[in-house]
């Protein structure tokens, strides 16, 4: 795939050549954030569907990972078949969650390749396009992961209440465990979303506009 010259890698140019051409301004982050938020808003239902992929993945991961996390906080992590089973479960959950998030984000970015090509024709810098997708993905990742954590942890709470009773099951969920699972869920969800969005967005931004406009999804 051919790519355009990057904005940083300036070619040396002959004296006088290009003297009449100014360079495109870089929009400030606040303006980029405004465009990105508007972009999420105007495709609200599409964003919700993408978000649901992240949401469910993180909820599943949070639920599956809770036994290990709780044992860790209670210093009761003992090697054995029980732990092996839990680790196996978490690995599987992480895999499902990664594939789910990657899939939703890749799809939602690739279906906008033509839009990226159009924006470049209208004078958007590559860096602005990457920045827009970065802000969108961060917002989407954090909000959906937080939602996923709420659902996943609520499930943990319910299951423990039912199986272990209030005193043994629920009271042992210390603030440390709650905070730990929240931080882990949001970090993992945010990072996966970001990676899955930035890779295709960067690729599309570096294509010549004609190539981006030719892509069909």
């Amino acid at each position: 795939m051919t790519t355009e010259a990057t904005e940083t890698g300036r070619k040396p140019k002959a004296e006088g050549v290009g003297g009449g051409i100014k360079t495109q301004i870089n929009l400030p982050w606040s303006k980029a954030a405004q465009i990105a938020m508007n972009s999420l808003k105007i495709r609200f239902w599409r964003s919700m569907i993408t978000g649901a992929g992240i949401f469910l993945g993180i909820a599943f991961l949070c639920f599956s990972g809770s036994p290990i996390l709780i044992s860790l906080f209670q210093h009761k992590l003992v090697p054995g078949p029980d732990l092996n089973r839990q680790v196996w479960l978490v690995v599987m959950a992480l895999l499902v969650c990664t594939v789910g998030i990657m899939n939703s984000m890749l799809m939602s970015v690739s279906e906008r390749f033509r839009e990226i090509g159009t924006m470049k024709c209208l004078g958007a810098l590559n860096s602005l396009i990457v920045r827009l997708f970065l802000i969108e993905a961060l917002f989407m990742g954090f909000v959906s992961s937080f939602g996923g954590w709420v659902l996943g942890f609520f499930a943990v709470f319910l299951v423990r209440w039912i199986t272990l009773g209030w005193a043994g099951g629920v009271t042992s969920l210390t603030p440390g465990i709650i905070a730990g699972s929240l931080v882990l869920s949001v970090l993992i969800g945010g990072a996966l979303t970001l990676i899955a969005a930035l890779l295709p967005a960067q690729r599309a931004a570096q294509m010549p506009p004609a190539a981006a406009l030719r892509t069909e999804v």
Partner: peptide, 26 residues
């Protein structure tokens, strides 16, 4: 060919307007 990406973007933004067969509206 002598323009870098920033100057090319300026050109596309200010000097040239594009119209396509498929409209390419967002």
């Amino acid at each position: 060919a002598q323009l870098d990406a920033g100057e090319l973007a300026y050109l596309r933004c200010h000097t040239i307007g594009y119209i396509f067969q498929t409209f390419n509206l967002i």
